[in-house]
Nucleic acid binder design. Structure first.
Length: 314
DNA sequence: CTTTAGACGAAGTATTA
DNA sequence: TAATAATTCGTCTAAAG
């Protein structure tokens, strides 16, 4: 192996919230989210009480994992019965009971039924636990978590979880919910926090769409722009500029079938250069979760479609 | 030395028969 | 289900700054 390791290499995790100083957190009005300028991660949406939420998300609080995501709404579960009735036909003192045998028999039958119920609950509890964990790592807003929980419940009711791991279905539900809310996370991002291979999550995703009759529109590349731009420390005006670029090329056939993240990355790259706030392809590609090659190709195509070949000098 | 550009096959995806 | 077409990725080479 003659290949050396570049100093700054494969650090795909732009999600390290510990390097997220409070003064680097800004509010994205277009999405109603707090976004970290360092990492581009969405911190929290739903700003009912700003200061309270703000304080909860200082790095120190983060480190201590004091609170994130808040009290789980609609995620409360019933732990079911802890006690059980055994088959020994004896009472507490060990004496044999004959008279009450019939009654006990009924009780057992009834409990067998509730046992099924409580096994569903246990499943749900575990699933919601996993959901919270993933959502937190992805910094998904609460309403997305609730939607994912709802989707998972539907999946359980339809028996779709049978023969599949809870984690994979939850991951797929998160993917769907994030897309619905237009705060998309890529399959790779979700895969990163799961033991489930990306392929499997994609399978479950398709299954959910089909079996639950869910319709999600194609991901709009524009939805990726704020995160990418913020991650690079670029301004709100620049977000607007990048958005304009994508809007202009939208109908020019350049965007069909292309990775939305790559398109957004290229738009940000172009806008940054135009604004005299140049970022390298490498930087943009990294925070966008695509390769430099892809940024390059999209860049070239957009420039050509817009006839900006000459304007890009310096 | 770093950034950018381009080319190639490998690999994963979407579409169609 | 299998074949196909288009796309991205990883790596390499090379030019430009």
């Amino acid at each position: 192996m003659s290949s050396e390791n570049p100093p700054v290499e494969n650090k795909p995790s732009s999600h390290d919230l510990s390097r997220c100083p409070p003064n680097k957190i800004i509010f994205d009005h277009s999405k109603g989210e707090y976004v970290c300028l360092e990492t581009g991660e969405v911190i929290e949406e739903r700003v009912i009480d700003e200061r309270a939420e703000w304080r909860a998300f200082t790095p120190e609080e983060r480190e201590k994992r004091a609170r994130t995501g808040g009290p789980i709404t609609g995620t409360v579960h019933d732990m079911g019965f802890a006690t059980s009735i055994d088959y020994a036909d004896k009472d507490a003192s060990g004496r044999r009971i004959v008279e009450k045998k019939a009654q006990l028999q009924k009780l057992r039958k009834w409990q067998a039924r509730t046992r099924i119920q409580s096994s569903i609950d246990r499943n749900l509890a575990q699933a919601l636990n996993e959901l919270e964990r993933i959502s937190e790592l992805l910094n998904l807003p609460t309403h997305v978590r609730e939607e994912a929980a709802r989707i998972y419940r539907l999946a359980v009711e339809k028996g779709l979880v049978r023969g599949r791991s809870i984690e994979s279905v939850i991951a797929a539900a998160v993917y769907v919910a994030a897309r619905e809310a237009r705060v998309p996370r890529s399959l790779d991002e979700i895969t990163k926090y799961t033991r489930i291979p990306r392929k499997e999550i994609a399978r479950c995703y398709r299954l959910l769409l089909k079996e639950l009759g869910i319709k999600v529109s194609a991901v709009d590349p524009i939805d990726f722009i704020p995160r990418i731009a913020h991650a690079l420390g670029l301004s709100g005006e620049l977000i607007m500029a990048a958005t304009d670029i994508l809007n202009k090329v939208r109908d020019k056939g350049v965007t069909a079938g292309k990775d939305p993240a790559g398109l957004a990355a290229a738009a940000v790259y172009i806008a940054a250069i135009s604004a005299g706030e140049k970022r390298t392809q490498k930087e943009v590609a990294h925070v966008a979760g695509v390769t430099e090659v892809t940024v390059r190709n999209r860049y070239k195509e957009i420039i050509e479609a817009l006839g900006l070949e000459d304007k890009m000098e310096e």
